[in-house]
Write a protein that binds this DNA or RNA. Structure first.
Length: 129
RNA sequence: GGUGCAGGCUGGUUUGUCGCUGUUCCCUGCUGGUCAGGGAAGAGAGGAAAGUCCGGGCAACGUAGAGCGCCAUACUUCCUAACGGGAAGGUGCCUGGCCAGAAAUGGCUGGGCAACAGAAAGUGCCACAGAAAAUAUACCGUCCUGGUUCCGAUUUUCGGUGCCGGGAUAAGGGUGAAAUGGUGGGGUAAGAGCCCACCGGGUUCCGGGUGACCGGCACCGCAUGGCAAACCUUAUGGGUUGAAAGACCAAAUAGGCUUCGGUCCAAGGGCUGCUCGUCCAAUCCCUGUCAAAGGGAAACCGAAGUGGGUAGGUCGUUUGAUCUUUUCUGCGAAGAAAAGACUAGAUAAAUGGCAAACACUUUGAAAAAAGAACAGAACCCGGCUUAUAGGCCUGCACAUUUU
RNA sequence: GCACCCGUAGUUCAACUGGAUAGAAUAUCGGAUUUCGGCUCCGAGGGUUGAGGGUUCGAAUCCUUCCGGGUGUA
């Protein structure tokens, strides 16, 4: 670590409110970056970016495998979320939906998450008042 | 030591660093709290956490109890909080070994399987084939016998054959998954447990066992198949719904109720589904002779209070039929006693990521390379079932080697 | 979490209360008809009835254990 970064991942940064999730999936706009579908929504009132990781039961049948993917995606977000911390960028609700059927290791997932996090600040999303 | 089968146990370890969720302690902050932030210590998935197939705890509802219906279970005894689970035993079937014997076979012993109550309470079903599929009856057949036709031999009479009758039978009918005890002998006109021997079956009694049941004597010629994972009968058990149960706290917005204050010749209705416009209407009750006036209802506006209740949160929620060790009781499942331990508690859901080292398996002389199963708590327990790499232990069988 | 339902030719469905070869349409293939194709006619193949075990003389059907798919509920 060259300089101190906030590498924590507390509960405030996880999207867990039923209402917010419904808004995100109703109003948010999405794009694909294999193996993820990313859904995003600007949230001016929020203090933190909030993220949600989802792995479909249809794609990965075993609960162990779903946990395996979710843990690695969350870890990749935790170590790379500073990419979103740019001045003038509003806070967002983000959903990362894993759509592949293959069981990827951390070293395959991390560069994809990095790409996504670099792409998000540049794109424009609908705002939620 | 090897291979196979059966059963049981186990289900990697350590370090660094960056994180997550509880617990305890410390510091700081204020709104002084079951608060927020920071730090430290110590803890953090399984034998199946799975399937949700059973049984309980717990909770709500209902409760004066009972019956019907429905569902489940079904050899015996025991274990257990309970069970459809487990232990031990009985019976039947299958199978391996040993012994006796010429053989048939018998005895001893190991293992496996069994929804293993009732078919003589009743109802129903048993295709095709077969005379017949549950009734010992009909049919064919066998035997005896009366009348009669014809033929042969012939004194009467006898034999054969066809037809019409009367009787005795249940031997035979070879089909089927299944056929009304089996084999042999006697017996008879022909036959039949009609009689006898052996085998099989049933009943009573006696003895053993808590019991399922076992053993023995005697007697009965033997009397009526299968299916209850068909309906059913008997016995036993089950009230229903499940932690998203349930208890509590409770923001914002809208609406409900109560109180207070204010407004009211406009609320309201029609044309018209809406807006505008226009028209209609100028309310009702009480006090009062009437009028005037006052009060109330209704409507609207504002304020305060309040009940329900949504988002959200807290509890339920992890100290328990708990775990470990020792001793005792019991064939065993298991039980009792003593000592010690606290061992996940999440909630769009933590228990992790990365980098190494060691141990294990395979290949290899080595270096090294590859592999490392099944699988993730969701209120909690007891089981069952299913998945499972590798390792360890026990028993049995087989072949081989050594002594 | 709880409760429940369904798996049959490539596809859509049958097969009664267990009874024999699992049937029909369509699709596929072959032949006929046509100059060729379509339509039509004739014929054929295609199923371990989701998998295993059991009951029964006999199982798609009854019982049981798994696998897969789906529905309701709050």
């Amino acid at each position: 670590m060259l300089y101190m970064r906030n590498c924590k991942f507390s509960k405030d940064e996880r999207l867990h409110s039923k209402k917010s999730i419904k808004e995100l999936f109703d109003k948010g706009s999405s794009f694909f970056l294999y193996p993820f579908k990313v859904i995003c929504l600007d949230q001016e009132a929020a203090a933190e970016n909030q993220i949600l990781v989802s792995v479909s039961k249809r794609k990965l049948r075993k609960a162990v495998h779903r946990n395996y993917i979710k843990r690695r995606v969350k870890e990749a977000y935790r170590l790379n979320k500073f990419l979103l911390e740019e001045p003038g960028v509003t806070k967002k609700l983000i959903a990362l939906v894993y759509v592949s059927q293959e069981l990827m290791g951390y070293h395959k997932i991390e560069p994809k998450v990095k790409k996504i996090l670099q792409k998000i600040p540049k794109a424009k999303f609908p705002k939620n008042e």
